[in-house]
Design a protein around this nucleic acid. Structure first.
Lengths: 222, 222, 222, 222
DNA sequence: AATGAATGAGACTTCATTCAT
DNA sequence: CATGAATGAAGTCTCATTCAT
């Protein structure tokens, strides 16, 4: 069983090595290492600011050797993203299944997002990086556009439940969709900061939804 | 009066200069043009993906001539950011002054953010780009870190008002700070999309704060 | 008036130089130098075996500076070829105009080919290199295919004259076309060797056409 | 009996090995396959544009395994060439023995060249590739120069026969040597095209030698 | 005999920056 | 003030070759 190394910081192991095949090498290990460090580096610095050499030396190989595993830097990025999607969507689907109401589903979603950040910090911030990289690099956008469209539909589906249960007035639907989207994007963007702050943000949203975060001021003045 | 060009898309071509060399090739005009297009380009593609040549040719000059106005690409970025800060903070201070309550101030803040997006679309998304670029490019972070710290304090100050007015329980303060921050970041990230969606997100937050966006479901099931 | 430097050997001038713009530089001179050395190097070693650095340092610049003059190595190659076509076709058209018979035209063509080799040795052998490079590098073939089709038609046109004058039996037309083509290709391939041998080959063909090169053996034995 | 695979196109894919590891994976089979595909690939694209991986995968092995059979890419190329020389010279010597006159020998030579092209199309165009590769790659030239000198002597020997039989005036000897060489090179260069055109070229040369290809025009005008 | 992981040199290309004019 | 020629560092990618297995 291969241990999940996703949580480790992006190592920068550049061990000098001689020519031919290194002894005791497991290809699957190297592949895993590459994807782990790539996820981490892309999450932190984005597509453009990460070089092949960065990835390779963090994975303990040379940049030429990367090409035994991926066809190009873009291909590496895409594969990392596809991996992510799988992980995230499984968790999110489970979260959604845990309740029948909008508030329940949305809270579970936030909770899942938080837990993902705890379990796989780079995975979560990679998702934030992707949105930015799609705007900045046309070649990334082209390859990932189909996935991002799926993601958008996701928000709408959750809100539709709220309309069905009566929690949300049909006229408010666009407002809630936009709100959900804004909050999830905001959370994604801040996930790489302290888990404590992230926790706070989620609790804030949850409390606000239940109407217990903010009350009318003692004396209205404006 | 120089017309505000911030709203124009980042021209990617020198305007077809009719009638030979324009008589009013004023250094100030060129300077303004450079900053306008730089703001726009940096907002759309970030620090790393914009080249000096992109900026220069959109401003109608060559990349060598840029160095008459700025010391380096980084310097240009920083100056654009400083310009932004001034514009934004004036508006935000005005917004804060318009009310004495947390809800009032926060709503005004969101309104100001929205209006900024309408008046200067690139200015607003530039702010979002800066946060990302600071994470991705250490040299940017180093130069802009002092401003971003000020920004953080801003959120805290607003929430402190809510604690003082009794709208926010002292224990909830970190939750509200985190929430405010998350929403504002989420809004900044989505500002470059349709104004309508942005409007919806803001209205959603406002309604939610007032407790009229989401209600308990007709029949609780989970 | 710029002197034709095409005849000079491919210089390998690598003068160390400091950063910015070098003093007393004429862009047209550098451009001319680049094309001259490129023609020469491509002629000698072909598209694949010539590096940008080879061309650049022979032209006295760095390989990055090449990109002020051409968009890519392929583009450089194509431009050199286009230059060549012009020179060659002007000469060949003049040669063809000098006579009304097939033998006259063909002899004049061979003479023009020889003179071209004397005047511009690299130009002529570049043409030979092109045929090979088109076979070896698909990207070259794609860009130059239209020119090479024109060239083929050329041979046919010359032979058609011979059919019209009665020098060639209509049934022999394909044989003569193939012969003309074979000889011209053979000459192109050997042009980079000594001019004396080239001269001999041309004289041999001419004499053969006039029936005075080879006679029946004194006593036929086989 | 191993079937001659020289006529097959250069396979670019390992044959789908059905039924697991073939029992007769004979080292000699693999060796033959390597040389066959190498000859074909080098003939089509030349030394520089063929990679070890191209050869290996067309032979159904990996590029590392190539090194069990040859010491280097250059070594492979040289060995293919040595193989060629043997085949070609045997045929050419047979052709020369079939007649005692220059015209007879030269015609037989052309016929042998054509037949070689029909029997082993890649073999013949490989010879053309070698001449080019020797000019383009010094390392190739160094290894093959001794063979190419032998080849040159060959032409002289044939012509000497013609001088002895009186078919060629002694003073014309250099012209005929150069002509023979030009034609053979021209034929070699065009052999990879349609056999029909090749046939035409040879018939054209033969007819021309016998004085029946081109006659004086009906009315001389120039 | 063969694989396939890995190296290291070198290719093409981009780009921030410098500087003579 | 502006151009545009040029550098040099760096980035993506290719490839001949080596070698543990």
């Amino acid at each position: 069983m291969r241990k999940p190394t996703a949580d480790a910081p992006c190592d920068d192991t550049a061990t000098g090595r001689r020519r031919g095949r290194p002894p005791a090498t497991d290809s699957a290990d190297t592949r895993q290492k590459i994807f782990d460090v790539a996820r981490c580096l892309f999450a932190e610095r984005g597509y453009g600011a990460v070089t092949n050499k960065d990835v390779a030396s963090a994975a303990g190989i040379t940049s030429g050797a990367l090409y035994h595993y991926v066809e190009s830097k873009l291909d590496l990025y895409v594969q990392v993203d596809v991996d992510m999607q799988r992980t995230i969507y499984r968790r999110f689907q489970e979260a959604l299944a845990s309740s029948d109401t909008f508030i329940g589903k949305f809270s579970a979603l936030l909770e899942a997002a938080h837990q993902l950040g705890v379990d796989h910090p780079f995975a979560a911030s990679f998702v934030g990086a992707v949105r930015t990289d799609m705007r900045r690099h046309p070649e990334v956008a082209e390859r990932l556009s189909k996935y991002s469209e799926e993601r958008e539909q996701f928000f709408v589906d959750v809100v539709d439940v709220g309309v069905a249960t009566g929690e949300i007035a049909p006229a408010d639907k666009p407002l809630v969709v936009a709100f959900v989207r804004t909050v999830l994007i905001g959370l994604t963007e801040t996930i790489s900061e302290t888990p404590q702050q992230h926790r706070h943000a989620i609790d804030g949203v949850t409390k606000l939804l239940r109407g217990t975060l903010v009350t009318a001021p003692r004396h209205e003045t404006a």
